[in-house]
Simulated scan of single mutants.
Amino acid sequence: MTEHKRKFEWVDKWAKMTGERARIDAKANKTAIVYRTEKGWVREHYDGTIETINSEENGGGKMREKERINRIMSLLQRIWEQQPDIRFNQLISNLQHMYSSQNEGYGQRIMKEKGPLGDEVESSYLDLFYLEDDKWEEFLQRIVD
């Protein structure tokens, strides 16, 4: 048993480092991480607050409402109809850049690439993966209004 434990001890260290990295990313990007504890699933926000989700205490967590899909798609359609010559992905890209610029650079990621001469070139891209639908819907509604 002792030999087996030593053989896979690195897994515990790796899991701990992964969790610490996720916390750092959440703070840097003003998002949250979700993980399981002995008492159930929790969401740890970038500011350190922790909320219990998907447990008996809160009735299983907060489900996203299905109706939001039609509302968001309808808003996108109204915006796109005002600019019918724009391709769909171009529209989405433009909207993401607008959202980011109006919200303190939310989702902007800086990276370094190797340039054509082998030098490092700084570049950036947008990642709105963690943007909640209600925030996106509010933003789209402001554009339509």
Rank of each mutant, 00 (worst) to 15 (best):
S74W: 10
E20M: 02
R21A: 15
F8T: 02
P84Q: 10
R87Y: 12
Q108L: 14
T49G: 00
Y106S: 00
R43P: 06
K62F: 09
S101W: 15
Q96G: 01
G107W: 11
R71C: 12
T52H: 14
M63E: 05
S100N: 02
G118N: 06
E44I: 09
E44Y: 08
H97G: 03
I92E: 04
S100W: 01
R109F: 04
S101H: 13
D47C: 11
M63P: 07
P116T: 07
E81C: 14
N94G: 11
M73D: 07
G115F: 04
N103I: 12
V11W: 07
Y46G: 12
G61W: 13
K13V: 14
H97M: 03
S100R: 13
G115H: 14
V11I: 07
I53S: 00
W10E: 04
R68L: 12
A32C: 12
K66H: 00
N103W: 01
E81M: 13
H45C: 02
E120L: 02
N29P: 00
I86W: 15
V11S: 05
K112M: 10
T31L: 08
K27W: 09
Q102H: 15
N58M: 03
M17V: 13
Y46A: 11
L76R: 11
M63S: 12
G115T: 10
G118D: 03
L117F: 01
Y35R: 09
S100Y: 06
S101M: 12
K39M: 00
G59R: 02
N29D: 05
S93K: 14
R87K: 15
T37Y: 05
S74G: 04
G40H: 00
K16M: 08
N89E: 14
L91E: 06
D25Q: 08
D12C: 04
E113V: 07
M111Y: 11
S74A: 13
E9Q: 01
G19V: 09
F8C: 06
S55P: 10
F8R: 15
T31N: 06
Q83C: 04
N54V: 02
K112I: 12
S55H: 04
E120M: 09
Q90D: 10
M63F: 09
L95D: 05
T52R: 15
